[in-house]
Amino acid sequence: MKTIITANGSDVNATLDPRFGRCEFFCILDEETGETEFIENKAKLQSSAAGTTAAETVIEQGVKKVISGDFGPKAKSLLDRFGIQMVILKDEGQIIANVINSITGK
């Protein structure tokens, strides 16, 4: 199963980006293999509807879970519609590697 974590940078040493729609990068994690891939969030500088466009990317990637600091109403309803689980982490400044470890249990 694939999970997306919003990240401030393009590797696992980056911190969790607390914004969903305007996050810098999406970290796509394969929960079985532990492999990660980082893609830039093309919506981050959009003047409007950043949350919707970011949700589009998540849906296109075929993931089942998204981990971020918060989700706006439009992103939330779109992700809900496609049964994608939203996980909110309130602990800002967490390193992506730690988030991954807590998911994969390593």
């Binding site: 959009q46 003047s47 409007s48 509807a49 950043a50 919707t52 466009t53 589009e56 849906i59 296109e60 075929g62 779109l78 496609f82």
Partner: peptide
């Protein structure tokens, strides 16, 4: 105005 959302795979 980013008013349209189209997601082809779904």
């Amino acid at each position: 105005y980013n008013a349209i959302t189209v997601i082809p795979p779904v």
